[in-house]
Structures are given as C-alpha cells and as structure tokens.
Amino acid sequence: MFEKFSRRTVRAVHTAVRTAQQDDSPTIEEEHLLFGILSEAGPVSRRVLGSRITPEALREAFARARRRGDLSETDMAALRRMGIDVRSATAALEWRDEPRRARPRRRFGGGHRPFSPDSKRALSGAVAEAREMGARRIEDVHVLLAVLRGGGLASGVLTDLGLDYQAVRRALGGG
C-alpha cells in the first residue's frame, strides 16, 4: 500500500509512529498522523495548514477534547444544534480525569504498535483523495484531506482550529 506514497508522506507516517511511541499510546491515532504531517510539512502542506495549526495548538486542542470524552468544540456545537446538551455528562468525565491513557498497555517484546481504525481509514482514504484529484503520488495533504473527511475527533479538532475539507481543497486549487 505504501509504494505510491511520496517520500514526504512516508516520513510523516514514520514521525507519527515515533510520536505515538513518545506518547505511550497503544495505537497510532489520527492525532499522531497530524503531528507527523506538521513536522515534515513542505511548502504545499505548510501553506494549507497556515499559521494557526502548530504542534502546541494541536496538543492543547486534543487535550481539551480528551478531557471532555473525545469531543471537540465543533462536536459540541453540532450536538447543540441538534438540541443535545452533553455538558453535565462531560463535566463528570473531566472530574474523573480519565486515567485511561495514563496507564498504557505494555506488550512483551514491545515493537508492534498498530494503527487505530480511524488512522487506517485515513491512510486508505488518502489513496482515494489522491486518485480523485488526479495526483500521481499520495502526498501528505491527501492524508490531511482524508482525516478531515473522516469526521472523527481529529477532523473536529482541525475544524476548531479553522481548517475544513473544503478550505483545503480550495487552497489546493481543486475546487
């Protein structure tokens, strides 16, 4: 599957794996893919990501969402527009401060760290994005587009920071 990935995209995925390791995360999440893309960004992805999306801003937005049971500001707004108020439920979670990630599952031999279902979808979605845009190689921005299209936590966090699918497509000149 990786043979059509550009070198930059492969480097971004490697960085994502390393970031997951540093975070002691049992899986490689979309969040880690975004950190990978950000740290390996070239001229195109840098222009698309803009100045608001920094590692610090991402970390902070993900941490905030995690304390709320994996809900971004964008998710909260969508729920509100549906007439659903989850604030008291998420406040109870914040109070408990979720020990889930503080206790990573350690494996014997410890090498293998799988991609989460969401990040797997993002990587295969990137292939579709590249094809749709008529690109020869799968670039980091195609992974970014797939994350945004996926509708998971990471897409909500990016939307919180002012980036959405249509905006990225426009920035790439692909309508």
Partner: peptide, 15 residues
C-alpha cells in the same frame, strides 16, 4: 451536523 453529532455521541458513550 446530525451525523457529526451521532459520531460524537458514540465516542462519548464509550467514555
């Protein structure tokens, strides 16, 4: 909005 809300609720439910 509706679909995002459903996906968000599913994550929240797990927590």
């Amino acid at each position: 909005d509706g679909l995002r809300a459903v996906a968000a609720l599913r994550r929240l439910l797990e927590h």
